[in-house]
Amino acid sequence: MAIRLKFRHAAALGIIAALSIGMVGCSNSGDTSATNSTTTSSGGATNSGKKIVMGFSQIGSESGWRTANTESIKSAAEQAGIDLKFDDAQQKQENQIKAIRNFITQGVDVIAFSPVVETGWKPVLEEAKKANIPVIVSDRRPDVPDDLYVTFIGSDFVEEGKRVGEWLAKDMNGKATIAEITGTPGSAPANDRSKGFEEAIKAYPGMKVVFSQTGDFTRAKGKEVAEALLKSDVGKSINALFCHNDDMALGAIQAIEEAGKKPGKDIVIVSIDGVHDALQALVDGKENFVVECNPLLGPVIMDTAKKVLNHETVPKRTVMKDGEFDQTTAAKALPDRKY
């Protein structure tokens, strides 16, 4: 019996081992595509002539936006001749901290990362500082003292919310009953987009947010929240909907259609991100206005990394230029939209 048990356990261990080797295999293949850049031009060399090594800790691959962001970083590193060590943290802060520690031990030249949440980064960034490795923050800002990173590159979420609010106020002549579907509670984009939107509509007493509920940045939740909203008493009175990202708006559009109303006409819909499907919705007349949140941060990050390592001064904050689309401009942009 004992021997048989042992055999079983060994077999089980074998399966687990095989699985984990498979997983390592996957991540290795991912790495090679990123580190292939070693063979390209010497454009990424520092003053001393050595190739720049960058460690990048990405949040994960939770949305189409994030995929485009990752793609941009990888291709920009290759073009700049920077040796990129890329880590996908699968939306977990502990994985990101682990990756950054690894980068420190490996002695990379520069670390870049997008913090999944705002808090909890101080200790690991202090370690990087002690090791004299400059840190570039991309996309989302961590809640740490300014001296722990050299620069923050990303969109201004407050500004995005503000632009949406201002467009809506203008379009509705300062009078609207608004429902808001928010992002993940506590995340920087959700907090800031709400704040910017409210700042913008404060000047118009006729603009009121009567309903606010989280859709967690996903299509399915956006649809479920909109369904419930449309059946509630306040839901019957709304004529405008603000979603913190495109995916939730796309879910809400389906719910509105299934309720027998016309999205984009009966209810004016505005959202943020500018993904392909949202532009399509604009073209179809089902959505009204989208503020872009530019995911193509790669070239700016690589450029900044070179400047930092050449001891040039860089601004503490680089704000990405975000475009905006209404129903007419979306038609022009749609064919070139890759994400």
Partner: peptide
């Protein structure tokens, strides 16, 4: 059902 509902598969959140 979840996929048919939103006419898309969101592998991260489904």
């Amino acid at each position: 059902i979840g996929t048919a509902d939103i006419r898309g598969a969101d592998a991260n959140n489904l």
